[in-house]
Structures are given as structure tokens and as C-alpha cells.
């Protein structure tokens, strides 16, 4: 019986210590209202990401070999926000360089996706994988989409 109690105590200790090791919240520098909104965007964005993007880019955003480029830590995302956001709706075609590696697999667009959903996905991708902790707002998405109405995005010249 004593053994049982000590095992129980050990568990409490283990879980207790996990609890106390709460990670530093990366949203802490934001004001309360923005923080709540960002969390909403992130929750919706994560669900949409796993539905539309994770098949190729993987749940952890690391991509697959030299077939599907990573999003995590991708220089491309930082340098080509417009193309990234247009690409979510219209797809992307042609050679693309991410962190110095050439990828050339056509990405299909998501034709039926709403502007809000694009904002949520983009917010998730940029905050989770590109360390930019920011809401990409509905208005920003509308503005960007207005510049790429129509076809598959042609990839810009190599930005390095």
C-alpha cells in the first residue's frame, strides 16, 4: 500500500513540475485585445492549415525532402508575402528557391477559400513558422488579393 502511495506522489510531482514549466508566451508583448484576436486567428488557422496545407508542407511545416518546400524558417515567406498569400488561393507554379534549395512542384490553389480563411491560414503560417507574431488582417488579405486576381501566381525572380 505504501508503494502505491509513493507511486502516486511521484506522479503528482512529475505532473506538477510539468505544469510549472509553462513556456514563455510569445504573445505577451501584445495588448490584451490583439492577443485574444491573434489566438482566435491561430486556432482557426491551425485547423485550416492541417486541412489544406499539411499534406505536403507537413504539420510541423518542415516540408518533405526536396519535393515540398518547408515553411518553417523559410526565407521565401519573409521576402514574398504577396506571393505566399496569393498562392494560397490561386496556387503556384514553376521553380522556387527556399533557403537556397530549388523546388519545382506545382502547388494547387484552394479556389473556394474565403478571404477570412486566407487571413487565418496566413496568420498561422507567419506566426507559427516565420516567427513574425502578427495578425494578417482581412483588409490586408483583400488588398493583396486585389493585386493577383486571376491565374496561378508566377514565381518572382530569385530573391537572395
Amino acid at each position: 500500500m505504501n508503494q502505491l502511495i509513493s507511486v502516486f506522489l511521484l506522479f503528482i510531482l512529475l505532473f506538477g513540475s510539468c505544469e510549472s514549466k509553462e513556456k514563455i508566451d510569445k504573445y505577451d508583448h501584445l495588448d490584451q485585445r490583439t492577443k485574444i484576436r491573434l489566438r482566435q486567428y491561430m486556432a482557426a488557422g491551425k485547423r485550416l492549415y492541417s486541412l489544406h496545407c499539411a499534406n505536403c508542407h507537413q504539420l510541423d511545416g518542415k516540408g518533405l525532402a526536396r519535393l515540398y518546400p518547408p515553411l518553417k524558417g523559410a526565407d521565401y515567406l519573409k521576402q514574398n508575402k504577396k506571393e505566399a498569400i496569393c498562392g494560397i488561393r490561386y496556387g503556384q507554379k514553376g521553380e522556387i528557391f527556399v533557403n537556397g534549395v530549388m523546388y519545382n512542384q506545382e502547388m494547387p490553389g484552394i479556389p473556394g477559400i474565403s478571404e477570412l480563411e486566407i487571413a487565418e491560414i496566413a496568420t498561422y503560417i507567419y506566426t507559427e513558422f516565420a516567427d513574425t507574431v502578427q495578425i494578417i488582417t482581412l483588409n490586408q488579405v483583400k488588398e493583396i488579393l486585389a493585386t493577383c486576381k486571376g491565374d496561378t501566381v508566377s514565381v518572382p525572380e530569385l530573391n537572395q
Partner: peptide
């Protein structure tokens, strides 16, 4: 097939 956007990438991740 190589251009499949839906289940093939998942299959290839698993087959890898």
C-alpha cells in the same frame, strides 16, 4: 501520381 495534391504526399511521407 506525382502531381496529386491530396493523399499522395501523405502516402509518400509514410512510405518514406
Amino acid at each position: 501520381f506525382t502531381t496529386c495534391p491530396t493523399i499522395c504526399p501523405v502516402m509518400k511521407t509514410q512510405m518514406l
